[in-house]
Amino acid sequence: MEFKEVVGRRRSIRYFLPWRPVERDKVQTILEAARLASRAGNADFARAIVVERDALSKADLASLTLPVNAGMIEMAPIHIYWWGDLKAFARDMPSRAAEQVDMGILNISHGWTHTFINEVAYPQVVQAFSSDEVLCAKVTGCEAGLAISQALLAAVDEGLGTMLCTYPEEPARQVLGVPDSWTSLWVQFVGYPAESWEAGGQRPRPPLGELFHEGKYGQPFRGTEEGAARLRAEKMIQDPAPFSWRKEEVRAVSRMLGLPEE
């Protein structure tokens, strides 16, 4: 699928076909897409545990369940528990940066040398990360989020339904055997959608200028009508919610799955 269409089609899918498994190579594709996302210092912020729902014991499934994820956790055959490694930057940055200097990725033209990494960047940046929890959480969440975003888009590109939801951190740490330095982020549910891929239409978003500014705060970024028209033609901007038949669809899908309809 073309990139813009993938972005346009992505939306949270909340109804999955419980009985339809996801092909393993599609799960691999999702993880590969996340692996290739942009990340500061080339550090391993984003970590994931892939879980096949049917391989979980009843007790483990119950430990991972929250009132808000209860329906999806049982409908989606694949769960990807995304975590952020709070130690990633301090641990990985010096060696990864050095490696990139040797590979000609970080260069003299931008000021990069081994001396800079070892004598300046390490004490100034890396140690700041080790001592400033807020900074560390902020950067880890952002960097892992970039990877998760690519994982979502890859799932859409593979014709799957996907969404992010919350999960209970400590029970998940126990069930999944995750190190203490990992912080819980999102669980990505993956499966074949039981609702149509449109899921009722593209979600409402404020106009561009309300979200994004130009020059300084208060001066809205101005898009053009031609720009928007082109994006509609390329399927990035799609028919907005609500679709006329959406409620009927939700009723039918709920009935199919035995969920409350009304």
Binding site: V68, L257, L259, P260, E262
Partner: peptide
């Protein structure tokens, strides 16, 4: 049948849900 039983249970869930008690249930196999 399973569908009818579930329907009745869902009426009660609906009562809770419409009163603000978020509640989800397993899909019916």
């Amino acid at each position: 049948g399973a569908g009818e039983k579930r329907q009745m249970g869902n009426y009660i869930r609906s009562f809770l849900i419409h009163n603000g008690v978020l509640l989800q249930t397993s899909p019916l196999s």
